[in-house]
Structure formats: C-alpha cells, structure tokens
Design a protein around this nucleic acid. Structure first.
Lengths: 228, 228
DNA sequence: TAGTGGTCTAGACCACTAT
DNA sequence: TAGTGGTCTAGACCACTAA
C-alpha cells in the first residue's frame, strides 16, 4: 500500500537529486496519483505537508512548483520551563523574587494595548536548574483577563505553569533576541554586567483580551535548538 | 457545510473556555462527527492539526485528551537572508570578505563529523540592509558534498543563496543563542566589543553527507519574531 | 483482545486564479 | 472561463496500545 509518507519521500528524492529543479512545475495531483496508483487524496496529503514546510509552492490553477527560495520552517517547542529543565535531566527549583500589583510603565501598557491606568500583576522570578539560575523571568499579567490569578499562590507554582493550566491562550507572539545583562540580571546569574544573554519575549491573548507579557532571560551559554 | 476549521475553532473554544479541562478526555472522533453531522475524516483533520500544535494529545485506544502541559510550537521562517531583508522593505547588498580552502579547526571538523585532513571551503561575508551591516556570516562548506561550489563566483551571489538553489538539504539542525561581539564582529558592525549579538548556527546534511556549517551574527537589536 | 486513532479510496463539489 | 488545488463524504482496513 502506498502511504503519503512514501510519496513524500519519493518527491523529496526527486527534488534533492535535482530531477525537479527549483521553480519547476511538477506534475499535478491527478497525474501523480495515476503514476503511484493511489488516490488523489494521498498525493494531496504528501504535497500539502511539503508546501507547509516551504519545499513546494502551490497555487490553484497555476499548479505546484518546487519552491525557488525554500523558506525552511524551524519548529521550536515552547514547553513549560519546569519540563524543559527536567527533560534535560536536571532538578527544578523556582523562586519568586517579587509580586506586586501596580500600574505598568508605558511601554508595557502599550505592548498589551492597555491604558497606563489599569493595574497589572507584576512578577519577578528565577527558575533554577540543578540549583543554578537558569531563567530570569519578568512578567506582567492582566487581571482583567484572568482574575483568579490574584488569589493564586505563585510562590509555589510558577506563573508560567499556573497560566498554562488555567488560561489557555488563543493567540500570541514570541520574539528571540540578545541583550547585555543588566546589573539586576548579573546579580541573579552571578555574572558580570554586560554578558550576552539570550532573551525570549512572549505576549499572549485570549481572543482580544491581552493576558500576559513575559520576558525570559536565559543563563549565559544557553542555546535553543531544533531540527530542520 | 462544516469545515475542519469550523470544528477546530469550536474545539479551541471549548478548551479556552474551560469546558474541557487540561488532561480531560474529549469525545472520540466518531462521537464528534455525529455531533457536528460530518464525516469522521473532517474531525480527524481538525484534531490532528491541534495535536500537531501541542494543544491535544492523542493515543490510539486511549483516546484524545486536552494536553496537560501544552508544548506550544513556534514556527520560525528561515528565509534566504536577501529576502528577509527585502521583505522588511530595505535594500540588500552582499560583500564577501574572504574565501579560502583550508583545513578546518578541530571543532568545525568535529561538528561536521569530518576528519581535520579534509580541506573545506571557508567563507566570511557580510549582508547589508540599506547599507548597514545586518548579518555577519562565517561559513564552512564541504566540497565533497557539492563540488560545483568551488567554481561558483560567491562574490556575486552569496553562498547562502547559491546553496539554496543548488543543494537542497535533506536534514539539518539550527540553534539560537547570544554572544558578546568579538573584536572582529565589533569592527564589522561598528560597535564596541562585547555588545550582545543574536547568533544563529546552522548545520545541514544531504543524506549522510554534511554540506555546510554556518554561523550568522545579527546586528545589535535584532529580534527574530513569530506568531504562536 | 478490543477500542481508538491513522490512513486509504473513489467520487464529488467548491474556491481560487491564471488566461 | 477553465484548470488546479482544497476539502468533504462514506466506507473500509490497519496499527497501535490499554486493559
């Protein structure tokens, strides 16, 4: 029996062996289905997934082409920090540094598309891996989106985890960058000010209501890794 | 007509409104198909994609559950650098700094799983965005994988682009990190040594043959961004 | 061993878009 | 307007795995 994976493998072979060149039109679904002796849906599944990974480029009526500039897609897993650490075989510990309900600075209010008058929950915490500081977290939570969090004991369960369990978001964005450690971060990590840190910023929404904005600074030397 | 997107939206609603709680068993495909009055394949498509994004967790015989710790998947586009720059509305310019065929240092040979005796093509280049240095590229190419590259004029077309057009890879890995600018990088970007730079390292393979290892340092302040 | 998801089929209609 | 991919259906068999 021909599976869609079989077809995908064969199509990938034809592309990587340059039997089908970048930009070239490839046979249409019906033709390939005939060639492989399978249903069109099977070919469709194979090619659709290849289009999703950026290897093929498909347009109705125009047909399917080998992508000229394959925009490869790297899929990064964004797990709960505790699991990330435990999966590396290390022990996890969490420490809340501060918790306050205050009006946010303008750039945070702006990022969350809220007025500066709305009071937000502001949290600072450290996640430890084998008792070494691994991630420094600075978070702002919109209580209007999820009032229950004001009663949660976030010194035991991290806000990261609490939110995952109590407030699934519907959309969000994430960005990765580098910055020089502030004095504050240098103290947390026991490093000198200015050391390059890998930073992840995340913003999540429930429908049109902003839930949380978080900035995670990783310990020096951290690499986020994935396969292509 | 019920589409798989309709179903996905409805299932997401039930999860985000906590009608279905994390860890909870959700109705099986046949039941949902009956409820929505559609074919099982349609429900399958909706749930399969949600499982791929980490929202559901599915096991044969055990059924489908709302993921307890949703490992959200962020999909990053890895385009050719020229397109990345042009898509930001900036002009692109490329400058090859050096090209030599030498034996690699041990850590590079090791990363490519090659002996230190194999001579490799070593390239250093800068990609400019609106005439500002945007990415500094340091690359090692294995000529055994793709001998034609030795004859390519890589001062005109970047190795990045040449490889995309002439050597589709079958597998690879990528990692993101931060490091303090070396003197060399500081000079390229016109910044002070030690400035935090966002770094992407990539390694690609054609079957079992290593093709290239590249290290890209982005200009200060660069953020890699995507939606969740 | 039985239940659930994974996939294939053959056919159909629809949506988009190049011409 | 016609051609191509996108999706749905109803039914079938299979693969994996919990019990």
């Amino acid at each position: 029996m021909i599976t869609w994976q079989n077809i995908q493998t064969e199509l990938l072979r034809r592309i990587s062996e340059r039997i089908w060149l970048p930009g070239e039109l490839v046979p249409k679904e019906v033709e390939l289905a005939a060639e492989f002796g399978c249903a069109r849906a099977t070919v469709n599944r194979a090619m659709r997934e290849m289009a999703n990974s950026g290897i093929l480029s498909r347009k109705r009526k125009a047909g399917t082409r080998v992508a000229i500039n394959p925009v490869r897609k790297a899929t990064l897993d964004i797990p709960v920090i505790r699991l990330d650490i435990e999966n590396r075989g290390a022990s996890y510990r969490y420490l809340m540094l501060s918790r306050e309900i205050i009006r946010p600075p303008p750039f945070i209010a702006n990022r969350l598309t809220l007025g500066v008058d709305n009071e937000l929950l502001h949290l600072r915490a450290v996640h430890f891996s084998d008792n070494q500081p691994f991630v420094y977290e600075e978070r702002w939570v919109n209580p209007a989106a999820i009032p229950e969090i004001l009663n949660a004991d976030l010194s035991l369960e991290s806000a990261n985890e609490w939110l995952v369990h109590h407030a699934l978001f519907t959309s969000g964005d994430i960005s990765f960058s580098a910055h020089n450690a502030t004095e504050n971060e240098a103290e947390v990590f026991g490093i000198i000010t200015g050391t390059a840190l890998f930073v992840v910023e995340r913003l999540t929404w429930l429908g049109t209501i902003p839930i949380t904005s978080v900035c995670l600074s990783y310990a020096p030397g951290f690499k986020m890794h994935t396969d292509l």
